[in-house]
Design a protein around this nucleic acid. Structure first.
Length: 523
RNA sequence: GCCGCGUUCGUCUAUCGGUUAGGACACCUCCCUUUCACGGAGGUAAGAGGGGUUCGACUCCCCUACGCGGUACCA
């Protein structure tokens, strides 16, 4: 509802409004989903607004379908914004920065007028060349700053006339922030506390590009202000440019409504080397996107399908639970928590500072826990389509029974379909090795003998199995593996008697006969 | 290189000056089950190093090391 604004100078109460602001440059990756999640949690915790803003200021990197993907991913995760692209316009439309393009220029101009920014005419080629030369001379990362701007082509170094003619002539130019030469910029981060940077380390960042689009820096300062954003929660990779942003707010006279920053720790690759990347995920065999997403191979140009968490068989609630606990911990020993509980428990102060390695094994464990907790009926509904497509022809209650038999053994919802396939269609594979070791022809003759005198329609399958085992006179260790393979084909799965019950006396008898005949042929 | 941020079991983490440093994943042992799994019981395993401050530091400060991030007319 209302949030106590601690560090704004004047203590004020402010409605919590947060935004998730991805670039439509491809599929949303796991780190992005977690950023969205933390934004969502803070908004819900305080009864505020969660906004989806699309930061598409770089036309070159725009990817078709990415925006729709982001919307669908948030929907699947169950963390839907209540305002913004795909979720309804509020009072601050439009929410796509490309559509807000005309709004930004005036603020860039304002900064130029107030002496906080200037025009620069250097072309990208000239700058590339200049950086190259500087690097060759031993400057590791050349800065466009208080010193170098004096000899580069801009309105601080050129005469007023020259600037005027260039602009009238239609020369392309950018607007750069005029970074002070040597000032300390101090700001408070909700996760890290006070952070200080010296402006001598910062350069004159481009605010408005030569195509008239703002860069991220200007765009988010303007939009966060106009959209009345109270908290800016983003990845740690933004921390180094935060002082620039603070200075922009200040120069525009917006410091009092500046959002409070919270820089999230990064999700690292499992070996701790670098930000979690698709490349690593691919290599180690786990998904990096919530939903499947097709990318284009940079070398071959061929389309590549990246299977998502959803398609792998993750439940959204399990996925979110797992993600929430990367870099955040509410205290206590409870790990299985619902979204509502997360909202209740959430606070940015409890977010960790250090980066966290991604652990796919733990992700699987979460899913397994959620799977086990689902009712048989729920699982049946979730799996019905796939399982019917795979050959299951029985009714819903039978399908639920099947799910109950299988779920303890499954990690993914997709496992439920495949793990007990032999129960709803013919056995596709037999473990011949076990048969070669365990098969005794007398089992078949005993079975024929046993079953000849029985009325299968009047017999319970479990009773039948127990009677038959006793009838063979064999030790359970001798007979059980054979019966298991005869019913399932493999040495895994639910208890033999339970499988028999599922198959029914008649179904079990048919299957035993068929399997025993086969066993005779392989022994 | 420079700047920033960080550093508790292999991994995710609890601890907010006084604990036998707790939990979870993974791993190992045993039990349950003559299958696989689930479940249960137990086990191995941690405060990067060095200085301070303090009666007392994982906890506060400094230095070092290491890791990550940033250093674009990308976000």
């Amino acid at each position: 509802m209302l949030y106590f604004h601690y560090f704004s100078g004047i203590m004020s109460e402010r409605r919590v409004r947060v935004r998730f602001a991805p670039s439509p440059t491809g599929g949303l990756h796991i780190g992005g989903v977690r950023t969205a999640l933390f934004n969502y949690l803070l908004a819900k915790k305080h009864g505020g607004d969660f906004i989806l803003r699309i930061e598409d200021t770089d036309q070159n990197r725009f990817v078709e379908g990415a925006e729709e993907y982001i919307i669908n991913a948030l929907k699947w995760c169950g963390i839907e914004p209540n305002e913004g692209i795909g979720f309804g316009d509020g009072a601050h439309a439009p929410y796509r920065q490309s559509e807000r393009k005309p709004m930004y220029r005036q603020y860039a101009e304002r900064l130029v007028e107030s002496g906080h920014a200037y025009y620069a005419f250097d072309t990208e080629e000239e700058l590339d060349k200049w950086r190259e030369d500087m690097t060759a001379q031993g400057v590791p990362s050349p800065q466009y700053n208080a010193v170098t701007r004096q000899y580069l082509k801009n309105s601080t170094s050129l005469s007023a006339d020259e600037v005027k003619t260039r602009m009238e002539r239609g020369d392309k130019y950018v607007v750069r922030f005029k970074m002070p030469r040597n000032d300390d910029v101090k700001f408070h981060d909700l996760i890290r506390g006070w952070v200080t940077f010296n402006t001598s380390q910062l350069d004159d960042k481009v605010l408005l590009k030569n195509d008239g689009m703002p860069t991220y820096h200007l765009a988010h300062v303007v939009d966060d202000t106009l959209m009345e954003i109270s908290h800016a929660i983003r990845g740690e990779e933004w921390l180094p440019s935060a002082p620039l942003h603070v200075l922009c707010f200040r120069a525009l006279g917006w410091e009092s409504t500046m959002p409070q920053y919270a820089h999230l720790p990064l999700i690292l690759n499992p070996d701790g080397k670098g930000k979690l990347s698709k490349r690593y995920a691919d290599k180690l065999g786990f998904p990096s996107f919530p939903l499947s997403w097709t990318t284009t191979n940079k070398e071959t140009g061929a389309p590549e399908l990246n299977v998502g968490y959803k398609e792998t068989g993750f439940f959204p609630d399990a996925f979110i639970n797992f993600l929430a606990l990367i870099g955040w911990h509410p205290g206590g020993d409870k790990e299985l928590i619902t979204l509502d509980e997360m909202i209740e428990l959430f606070s940015l102060e409890k977010v960790h500072k250090a980066g966290a390695r991604f652990d796919y094994e733990k992700a699987k464990w979460f899913n397994q826990q959620y799977l086990k907790a689902r009712s048989n009926v729920e699982l049946a509904a979730a799996v019905k389509k796939d399982i019917e497509a795979a050959g299951f022809t029985l009714g819903d209650s039978k399908l639920a029974e099947y799910c109950g038999l299988i779920k303890e053994r499954a990690t993914f919802i997709t496992d439920v379909v495949t793990l007990g396939m032999y129960l709803y269609k013919d056995i596709q594979y037999y473990d011949d090795e076990t048969i070669k070791k365990k098969w005794k022809p007398e089992i078949k003759s005993k079975w024929d003998e046993y079953v000849a005198s029985k009325d299968l329609s009047a017999l319970e399958a479990d009773v039948m199995m127990n009677e038959f085992i006793a009838f063979t006179g064999l030790k359970t260790g001798e007979i059980m593996p054979v019966l298991r393979v005869a019913l399932a084909g493999i040495l895994q799965g639910p208890p033999v008697v339970d499988m028999a019950k599922f198959l029914g006396a008649k179904g079990t008898a048919e299957r035993l006969k068929k399997s025993f005949d086969y066993f005779e042929s392989v022994r």
